[in-house]
Simulated scan of single mutants.
Amino acid sequence: MEFIDTHQHLILRDRLGYGWTAQIPALATGDFGLADYHALVAGRGITGTVFMETGVDDADYRAEARLVAGLIGAGGMLGQIASCRPGEAGFAGWMDEAAGLGTVGFRRILHVVPDDVSQTAAFRADLRAIGRAGLSFDMCFLARQLGLARDLARACDDQVLVLDHCGVPDIAGGAFDTWAAGITALADLPHVVCKLSGITAYCAPGTATVALLRQWVDHVLASFGPDRVLWGGDWPVVNLGSGLPGWIDMSRELLAGLSEAERFAVAQGTARRVYRLG
């Protein structure tokens, strides 16, 4: 099983600001660059990557995309999901520029802004512009916000939307039922797909195992179906859970019961379709 990693972050502190890492000791210092990533995945079946915007400081989000554009094509990087600010001045101009930067989709992290940001008419109008351009939008919501995600998806029903990190379930707290209901409701919308990523970081420290994750992953697969699930590594944030090599190994085990075609869909087929990777 060879994976396309659709959620590859980089932290390059000498060029960009990452204020969000300051309170996370494992990520607060040092760089996390391409050489580090490739050393971790060597021989582990990563056949390509898609860079995911890393939540840089607001002043730097365009600089990040411009910097990453120069890395695409090297070391298996197939494209980037660039940060954007739907509903804010200058959005259309940024979309036009980003089209020339190897952009295969956009994201705005929505759990770090007020809940009503994604509910405004201006935000949704700009989101639909992304869809008209044939690009996907990655939705980053917490489990408590899955209703907001569904409202947004219903308002933008003619484009592909990707729910990152399985909707950020509270695995450590065992809060399965409410999260599962939200996932089921979102999966009823055929233009929404789910990214299998990040979830080991939501386990209590040192507890992430295949046995613990099984019911959460199985619910995602049963709700969306493998053709609407894609895989991501979420490095280096995954270091807060299993680490990237551990997550790759767990993913193989968690997907082992699927058919060959279904495993291919999750590992890379859905990603190729959603992000137009060929």
Rank of each mutant, 00 (worst) to 15 (best):
Q268R: 14
Q8I: 10
L196W: 05
R276W: 10
S197C: 00
D57L: 04
G206F: 07
H165V: 06
A22M: 10
P114D: 06
W231D: 07
I183S: 04
A121C: 15
P86T: 03
T209P: 09
V41P: 06
G90I: 12
V56H: 04
E88P: 13
S242V: 12
W179I: 11
W231C: 02
S223A: 05
I46W: 03
G131L: 07
D14Q: 11
H38A: 13
Y275V: 03
L16D: 09
V237Y: 04
G233D: 03
I199F: 02
L146C: 01
V237A: 11
G241L: 01
Y275G: 09
A143K: 09
A35I: 04
G233V: 02
R150H: 08
Y37C: 05
A149C: 06
A133G: 13
E253D: 09
L196Q: 06
T178V: 15
R273C: 04
A28C: 05
D60I: 04
A261D: 11
W94T: 08
L101N: 00
L240N: 12
W247D: 00
G48T: 01
W235E: 04
D115I: 11
D151Y: 13
I171S: 05
Q145N: 13
I130W: 11
A26R: 15
A187T: 11
T103G: 06
L255P: 01
A121W: 09
L161A: 02
I24S: 12
L213C: 08
Q119A: 14
G198T: 04
D170S: 05
P205F: 00
D60R: 09
L40R: 14
Q23K: 15
F91A: 12
M1L: 02
Q215A: 14
G73A: 03
E262T: 00
L161I: 00
L244C: 06
V229R: 05
I130H: 08
G79A: 13
D126S: 06
F51L: 14
R108F: 12
G76M: 00
L254S: 01
F32M: 09
E262C: 00
R44P: 14
D96Q: 07
E97H: 02
G33R: 12
H38Y: 09
V237G: 05
V162E: 02
F176M: 13
A267F: 02
D188H: 15
A175K: 15
S242A: 15
T178F: 15
V229T: 05
G33E: 10
T270H: 01
G75Y: 01
H191N: 04
L40T: 11
C194T: 02
V68E: 10
W94P: 10
D234S: 01
T178E: 15
Y275W: 07
D5T: 04
G100V: 07
L78E: 00
D158N: 15
A39L: 10
L135C: 07
L152I: 04
G90L: 10
